[in-house]
């Protein structure tokens, strides 16, 4: 059974089919890249999977459970975490607090235990902090040390992207959805992040699905590439297969040339 599978998924925005009868699957342990020209429905796909919007028809099965109709926090609890194309951090919370929010769905203590500061509460807080710091430490020294107590808005752009990934990691997901993780990064940072995505799978065991425009990244990390256009899957396979697919090239030439081929 695939980890994630969609069957006949459809989402219409004002007559426009953002996602049109989409069938795709992601196996456990894979790194899958979703590519496609602007407006192909990639981010809509992520929004559907993470429960931020509801599909008009079709199913989204995660480990056999249909996600349609579930609240986003329930989906996260099942093990799907995501990042955002336009980096959406909790700006006025500290770096550490941002990552600690990731642990929210994995912990239970409520207001009464918080007020009484029970031993169980303290142990849980300690564990939340440890896991958050662990996730932050994955990025070397960039997000730890004095940075822990800084509000997120002071971070540099690249660090904000890293923090967003760390926050998603702290939710202990099975499937990690990364929406253009290297957008706006310089070549050196992009390279670093490409290696990091591979490490995320190898060391942490996450299954990863990423939306990416930078074909060097796609080539570097993907086990499999899926190309969307007008909400439909037009090609699927290894990077090489997809990159040489006629329909893919055609779809891209309509808007912009395939980079790096």
């Amino acid at each position: 059974m695939p980890l994630l599978e969609t069957q006949g998924l459809t989402k219409v925005f004002g007559g426009l089919h953002a996602i049109d009868d989409l069938d795709l699957h992601i196996e456990e342990g894979e790194i899958v890249s979703v590519i496609g020209p602007n407006g192909a429905g990639k981010t809509t796909f992520f929004n559907l999977v993470s429960g931020m919007i509801q599909p008009d028809s079709g199913k989204i099965l995660f480990e056999g459970i249909d996600l349609v109709g579930l609240a986003p926090h329930q989906i996260l609890e099942l093990g799907i975490a995501r990042t955002f194309q336009n980096v959406r951090l909790f700006q006025n919370m500290t770096v550490l607090e941002n990552a600690m929010v990731g642990q929210h769905a994995r912990t239970r203590s409520g207001p009464i235990r918080a007020i009484l500061r029970t031993p169980g509460f303290r142990a849980e807080e300690e564990a939340i902090r440890r896991k958050a710091e662990e996730a932050l430490a994955f990025f070397g020294t960039r997000l730890i040390g004095y940075r822990l107590e800084q509000p997120a808005f002071v971070l540099s752009y690249a660090n904000r992207r890293r923090l967003e990934i760390a926050r998603a990691m702290a939710t202990e997901p099975k499937l990690l959805l990364l929406d253009e993780p290297t957008a706006g990064m310089n070549p050196r940072e992009t390279l670093e992040l490409t290696e990091l995505i591979a490490r995320l799978r190898d060391e942490k065991g996450f299954t990863i699905c990423l939306i990416e425009h930078d074909m060097r990244v796609v080539r570097g990390v993907s086990d499999r590439v899926i190309c969307l256009d007008y909400g439909r899957k037009i090609a699927e396979g290894t990077y090489h297969e997809v990159a040489t697919n006629e329909r893919v090239i055609e779809a891209y030439l309509g808007t912009k040339a395939v980079e790096g081929v």
Partner: peptide, 18 residues
């Protein structure tokens, strides 16, 4: 387990809240 049986047995989180 198939999707149908999962739905039939009601596995997964509740969809009808307070």
């Amino acid at each position: 387990m198939t999707a149908a049986s999962a739905a039939a047995t009601g596995r997964g989180p509740s969809r009808f809240g307070f």
